[in-house]
């Protein structure tokens, strides 16, 4: 018996190109959505105030500053969600880091001087943020605790510790360099945006160009296949949750810099925004898909909605409704797309 070669039929190939194009469009949906949203606000702004929304540098900057903390949380959350998990503790890890940064910088400033105290305080805060991340990782990787439960427990622990360390109030920071980091600009660009941009690029690289990122996708899609391929899943998950803790840590440091104060509840309202940004950005809560680029768009969508609604003078509660609706739409699109293009092709 001879075997006849298996050629892909030309029509199948054609249908396939269409599918690929559609896939690309779907991957970019958060960016498309962002563009429509901005266009909408632009039109509204011109019609009702006769002024521009988008081409006002103040607006752009405000939106970007607004997006910093949720985006930092969301980059870490993107990795966790792709792996098939979720990190609910990020908000309070962020608060914990903000309080730790405030205390350590206050303590170190007299001895080290302004600049070194900031560097030292930021490092300590990010390392402290890694500890709850490490515990999350151990719970999920070694004790097989579902991520939702394990990180929910850590949510409570980090919250309690942060409030205890802060003595129940906010901790003001007296350090001009730190305040400048949070509020000054270089060539018109705020430092915190530069720091965030660099960090996001590094996270994009980590997810899309390294073995760690590749294994993250594989584990999210089929943990058993990943294990069989020789990937050390426990070690991966441990590092993954440490990474997400450190993202929250950085967000906490930048928060403390911006307000010259550490507050335990700094990240409380941001956790859900971060999950929303990841989902709007095209990741699936079932794991296995998502990109940092999509998450950036997702975070910007949320920031534009929140800022834009204030800008056009709508009661602030509409923010919750709008963001909620966008999340639901994103999930529906994701499921439709899954049904359409995820289906196996038999020929």
């Amino acid at each position: 018996m001879t075997s006849s070669p298996e050629h892909v039929a030309p029509e199948a190939d054609h249908a396939d190109k269409a599918r690929t194009v559609l896939q690309r469009v779907a991957d970019l949906r958060a960016w498309l959505f962002l563009a429509f949203l901005i266009l909408g606000f632009e039109i509204w702004s011109r019609v009702s105030f006769g002024g521009t929304f988008l081409f006002n540098p103040f607006n752009i900057q405000s939106i970007a500053v607004f997006a910093v903390a949720p985006l930092l949380l969301a980059t870490g959350q993107t990795f966790v969600i792709i792996s098939g998990g979720i990190d609910l503790s990020m908000g309070f890890i962020m608060g914990l880091a903000a309080v730790v940064a405030a205390h350590v910088i206050n303590w170190a400033t007299p001895g080290m001087g302004l600049g070194f105290a900031v560097i030292f305080g930021a490092l300590v805060a990010v390392l402290v943020a890694a500890i709850p991340g490490l515990v999350n990782g151990m719970l999920v990787a070694f004790l097989k605790v579902p991520p939702f439960i394990g990180t929910l427990g850590m949510f409570g622990v980090a919250r309690g510790v942060a409030f205890l360390l802060a003595g129940g109030t906010t901790v003001p920071v007296k350090n001009e360099v730190f305040a400048a980091l949070g509020n000054s600009r270089l060539y018109g660009v705020p430092y915190i945006i530069m720091v965030t941009a660099v960090f996001v690029v590094i996270m994009h690289y980590l997810l899309s160009q390294t073995k760690f990122g590749q294994h993250n996708y594989a584990i999210g899609a089929n943990a058993q296949a990943a294990r069989r391929a020789g990937i050390n899943i426990k070690w991966h998950l441990l590092r993954l949750y440490v990474l997400s803790g450190m993202c929250a840590g950085l967000a906490g440091v930048l928060y403390a810099a911006r307000f010259s104060a550490g507050a335990a509840q700094a990240g409380e309202p941001l956790l859900l925004d971060s999950v929303a940004a990841v989902v709007i950005g095209g990741a699936s809560l079932f794991g296995g898909s998502g990109t940092i680029l999509g998450t950036v768009a997702g975070a910007l969508v949320i920031a534009v909605i929140q800022y834009g609604l204030v800008f056009i003078n709508v009661a602030p509660f509409w923010q919750f409704i709008s963001v909620g609706v966008v999340i639901i739409i994103s999930v529906l699109i994701d499921q439709a797309q899954r049904r359409f293009s995820g289906g196996r092709q038999s020929e």
Binding site: Q214, H215, Y217, A218, G220, A221, N222, A225, A226, A229, G230, I231, G288, S289
Partner: peptide, 14 residues
Amino acid sequence: LADNLTIGANIFLG
């Protein structure tokens, strides 16, 4: 197989 990865990525997984 990891369904979300390409053929190449699956061949080289790990």
